[in-house]
Simulated assay, not measured.
Amino acid sequence: MAFPIIRNRRLRGSAALRNLVRETNVTIHDLIYPIFITHGTGIKDEISSMPGVYHYSLDLLEEELQEIVDLGIQSILVFGVPDHKDAHGSSAYDAHGIVQQATRRIKELHPQLVVIADTCLCQFTDHGHCGVVHFDEQKQRADVLNDESLELLVRTAVSQAEAGADIIAPSNMMDGFVYAIRQGLDEAGYDQIPIMSYSVKFASAFYGPFREAAHSAPQFGDRKTYQMDPANGREALREAQSDVLEGADFLMVKPALAYMDLIRQLRDQFDLPLVAYNVSAEYSMVKAAAMQGWIDERAIIMETMIGFKRAGADLIITYFAKDVARWLRE
C-alpha cells in the first residue's frame, strides 16, 4: 500500500514535529577540538589557510582554554609545533617537549578537560616523515623503517602519558603501532590510558592546510608507502581489524567527508567508539566559500556534522567545534 494512504510529509509539517521524529542529533559531547601549541611567548598567530585557527604559545593558552571550557567542549586534541627538529624527531618524546609542556599546563588550568595527545613524529623530524628514514644509496631511494619507528612512537606515547594525557592518539600508520604502544603503555604502568587509533588514514589531498599549521610537510617524496590509497575500501576494514586485535579503544576515519561510506562500514562491523576527523581542507573550503558569500556557513557545517553522525560516527574531531558549540546553545 502506498500513496495516497502513505504520506511521508505528514511528519514534516512543523519544526516541533520534525524535532520529535529526528533520527540523528549532534551534541556538545560529540565534539573534539584540535589546538596547535608552539614554543615562545606572546604568540597568537592565525594560520593563513585556516581562518579562525591559531598557533598559541603556552603563556597565551589560558584564554583559549577558558573559551573552550565556557562553550562546554570537554575534549581537545593537542598538536605541538616544536622549535627543534632532527632526523629521529627527538623532541616528540622529550619530557620537556611542547606537547608534554602543553599537556601539563592544560591539566593545571582545567584538569577536567580530556587531553588527547597526537602521537606522531612528522612535526618533529627534519624530513617531515612519520618515522625513521633510511637512505639506500644503492637504490637511490629513501624508506621509512617500520619497526625502528615503532620504538620511537612508544617512547613518545609513554612521555605523553607521563605528562598527563588522558588519551593517546597515534596517527603514524606504521604496521603494528597499536600493539607496540599498548604494550609500552602497559609496561610503563599506564594500562588505563586508552588508545584512539588513526585506524583508517588516507594519503589525502585534504591535509594541505594542516601541514602549514603543523609545519609537517615532507621534505621529499610523499607518505603513500604508509598512509592508505584513497581508492581502497576493503583495505580500510583490514586496517581497522588489525587495530581492534592489537588493543585499540577507539577507531578513526581520516579524512571524514569523502569517506562516509567507510565510516558506515566500520560502524556496521565494529563495536568500538568511532571517530570522524573533519580535516583541515574540509574546514578551509567551507570558510573560503563563506567568506565569499557563496554559502550559508552555519547550514553547511551543521548538515555536515549530521552527516558524520548519520554515517555512524560517535565523535567528531573538527576545527568547527567552537562554532558548532555556540550554535547548539541557541
Rank of each mutant, 00 (worst) to 15 (best):
M1I: 14
I5A: 15
I5N: 14
I6F: 13
N8L: 13
R9N: 14
L11G: 09
G13V: 13
S14D: 09
A15S: 12
R18Y: 05
R18V: 07
R18K: 13
R18D: 02
T24V: 14
N25H: 12
I28Q: 03
H29G: 11
D30S: 09
P34L: 08
H39P: 03
H39A: 10
H39L: 08
H39K: 10
G42T: 11
D45S: 12
S48C: 04
S49L: 14
P51N: 05
S57V: 03
E62G: 10
E64I: 07
E64W: 01
L71S: 05
I73C: 00
G80E: 07
D83S: 14
H84L: 10
H96R: 15
H96D: 14
H96F: 12
H96G: 12
K107R: 11
E108W: 06
E108P: 03
A117N: 05
D118K: 10
C122Y: 03
Q123F: 07
D126L: 09
C130F: 07
E137T: 07
K139V: 03
A142L: 07
A142W: 07
D147R: 13
E148M: 10
S149T: 15
L152M: 12
L153C: 10
R155F: 07
R155V: 06
V158K: 02
S159A: 15
S159P: 03
A161E: 04
A161K: 02
A165Y: 05
A165P: 08
D166A: 09
D166Y: 05
I167R: 02
V178D: 01
A180C: 09
Q183G: 02
Q183A: 13
L185G: 01
Y190M: 09
Q192T: 14
I193G: 02
I195H: 02
M196S: 10
Y198F: 15
S199Q: 04
K201G: 02
F202N: 04
F202L: 12
S204G: 10
S204P: 06
A205F: 07
A205Y: 09
A205T: 12
A213L: 05
P218I: 10
F220S: 13
D222F: 07
R223D: 12
K224L: 06
Q227S: 10
M228C: 06
N232A: 14
G233M: 04
E235H: 11
A236F: 01
R238D: 09
E239T: 01
D243C: 06
L245R: 14
G247L: 08
F250H: 03
M252Y: 06
M252H: 04
V253D: 01
K254W: 08
A256N: 01
L257K: 11
L257P: 00
Y259I: 00
I263F: 01
R264V: 01
L266S: 02
L266E: 03
D268A: 15
F270I: 05
F270V: 08
L272T: 00
P273G: 11
L274F: 09
L274E: 02
Y277N: 01
N278M: 01
S280I: 10
S280A: 11
E282P: 00
E282R: 04
V286T: 09
V286P: 00
A290Y: 11
G293P: 07
W294R: 08
E297G: 02
I300K: 03
M302W: 02
T304H: 07
M305N: 04
I306W: 08
G307A: 14
K309W: 08
R310G: 05
R310F: 04
A311G: 12
I317W: 00
I317H: 00
Y319I: 01
K322Q: 15
V324F: 05
W327D: 04
R329K: 14
E330Q: 11
